[in-house]
Design a binder for these strands. Structure first.
Lengths: 158, 158
DNA sequence: CGACATTACATAGGCAACCTATGCATCGCC
DNA sequence: GGCGATGCATAGGTTGCCTATGTAATGTCG
């Protein structure tokens, strides 16, 4: 298994953190190849989590640029997954809402992808369901703190 | 924080597995934006782990197509990170080897990326080092079993 | 109330990473 | 020697994402 020529087994915090990213990248591509992972899924996922939002705020939450999110919203709107209306309180901004069809599409993708991944996880006796939850939590929290600390956190609540 | 309109909090195995992929995708893009994550890193990482290999085998290990790996190898060879020689035992195939410079480059990227990610992880008191190790293991093992079951698993070592 | 910075979004243009399809040379085998 | 299988390269096209920039609406301030 181990090759004597390798630099060293992943042991340090640095290698661990680096490996986290590398393996995440591999997983994403592997999923994109075999399953169905359009970029718009993340948009639907955010709207499902946070409710209606404007484009810029969506971009921040997805850690992408505003033009990228504009395109994603336009594409999703074309397919009827989201509804984009001008904000009545601010003519500059929009309000993007998850439609019923979008919710169904999100559920469909979650189901298909989830089934595959869950099946593979089930074949790994060394990893409990709790381990997967831990992995998800690590990834999520890792991103949360990489945002601007004060402004974007759901301005609706206040 | 929670919005009453949302479909539901991630609870089922399916949603958990799906969220794993979505969050992984977000992390990868977030890292690509701020840090340095050229595609070739994965190639170097594989060579570091497994030692010299041919292009097709590398592609399988990285879960990418063979042409993609051919391009990655060519790019890495241009920069002196790998050495590509014809296989003396089989004129069809090549043997790609990690050079000293490639090893150094891999160490550099692991250091810079690792420092950033590790620093952010350190700012998350709710996640232990063990949690990160768990996350890495889940991602890695998840990919291991998605391969052909018998042939490619470093047939050399055993 | 008019000038000016700020904010929210759209558009233009381009690049990087991948993929499928296909061609070519070699190897294994009968 | 013919023939399928294997290893790799090339061609062509798609997706995803970025920076730079323009435009319109909003807040601010003299």
């Amino acid at each position: 298994m181990t090759d004597p020529a390798r630099t060293g087994p992943p042991a340090t915090d640095l290698e661990l953190a680096s490996d986290l990213v590398v393996h995440a990248a591999r997983l994403v591509r592997a999923v994109r190849r075999t399953l169905d992972l359009p970029a718009g899924v993340r948009l639907l996922s955010i709207l499902d989590e946070h409710g209606p939002l404007g484009v810029s705020r969506l971009a921040v939450l997805d850690r992408c640029s505003q033009p990228t999110m504009s395109a994603a919203v336009a594409a999703a709107a074309d397919r009827g997954w989201v509804d984009k209306q001008p904000n009545p309180d601010d003519a500059r901004s929009s309000v993007v809402t998850l439609t019923r069809a979008g919710r169904a599409e999100l559920a469909r993708i979650r189901r298909t992808n989830g089934e595959t991944v869950a099946a593979r996880l089930a074949a790994l006796p060394q990893h409990s369901r709790q381990d997967v939850a831990t992995a998800v939590a690590v990834l999520r929290d890792l991103l949360d703190i990489s945002l601007e600390p004060h402004d974007l956190s759901e301005g609706a609540a206040r």
